[in-house]
Simulated scan of single mutants.
Amino acid sequence: MNRPVVLVTGADLAKEATEVLNEFEIIYTGKAPQPENVLALCQLHNPIAIILRYGGISAEMMDAAPNLRVISKHGSGTDSIDKLGAKERGIEVKAAIGANAAAVAEHALALMLACAKSTIHLNERMHAGYWDKSTFKTLELNGKTVGIIGLGAIGQRFAKMCDAMEMKVIGFDPFANNIAAYIAPVDLDTIWKDADVISFHCPLTSENSQMLNAKTLALCKPGVIIVNTARGGLIDELALLDAIAQGRVAMAALDSFATEPMTVPHPFQDNPKIILSPHIGGVSSAAYINMGVGAASNILSTLSAKN
């Protein structure tokens, strides 16, 4: 008897996740799935569920799998899924909320510190034989204001770290509940005007696309640090480059980009005021297991509820 199929847009899942799905046949697309390949596998296997690791899921893919009942994100961001198309077809969209919160918050902290403490620049100088102790000063974050956009599991975890460093924490999130007492809720204009560091931790929507743009950057404090471990589409990349060139932005540390993988050559390359990482904030050994188990568990709970 054929088992129902779960299609994974990636090359693997954590062993703990595959054990949750032991009643299903798991089909993998490979580590760099192209839309045409995902579409073909949907047509061939007619999966009952899809675990989205890489790439996106379109309405065309959904139509190619008439048995599809749930799309489960291996992580928290669902902007690469046609959610309206899924709703129209009665397909549930689920995310493993909070599964990678620790990993992403830690990465955001590392990027913020790398900017403030010039760790990459100083490391390169040391390897080149220089000793800049008498001529270089870093930025002390104690007492500085961090503005956090998005106060979900990741944003609030990052906020707790910043509070422990005795930073003033302000945050914007019109949908957040149970905001910690050390976070001062403010509007976006206050974030732009008051923050010494701005860190993004919100999903990408049609309403907030390129929310950091020439207009909002002009409101920011001179010398602001920008950290983005959320979605690249939140930032107008050309406007950010211009603000860095003008000195409005002192440093930017980016883990996500408008186009991924980041196009090469890219104007961010070889810019010493921009620190880059390949959307790896949520990729830790623990998060890999947590996201896989979360995605698998969401499939089981959704299918159970539909039966």
Rank of each mutant, 00 (worst) to 15 (best):
G90Y: 06
A159N: 11
K94M: 12
W192H: 04
A159V: 09
I91E: 05
I191D: 10
V93S: 06
H107P: 00
A99M: 02
A116N: 12
Y130W: 05
A110G: 14
A102F: 01
A195V: 06
L141W: 07
M167V: 07
H127P: 01
V104S: 02
D173Q: 06
G77W: 08
I120Q: 12
I179H: 04
I191Q: 09
A176H: 08
L122S: 09
Y130M: 11
K94H: 00
T135L: 10
E166D: 14
L109F: 10
L122D: 14
P185T: 05
A176E: 07
A96N: 10
P203M: 05
I179Y: 02
A101I: 02
S134Q: 13
A116D: 12
V186H: 04
V104I: 13
L204E: 13
A153Q: 15
R89L: 00
V104C: 00
T145A: 02
S80L: 09
I149C: 08
M126G: 07
A103E: 10
I148Q: 07
S118R: 13
A159M: 06
W192R: 01
N142A: 10
V104M: 06
A103I: 03
A102M: 05
A95I: 01
A176C: 03
P185W: 04
E88G: 10
A184Q: 14
K94S: 07
L113F: 09
K117T: 14
W131Y: 11
M112Q: 11
A116T: 15
E92H: 10
A128V: 03
A184P: 03
A164Q: 12
I120M: 13
N177L: 05
D173V: 01
K160L: 13
V93A: 06
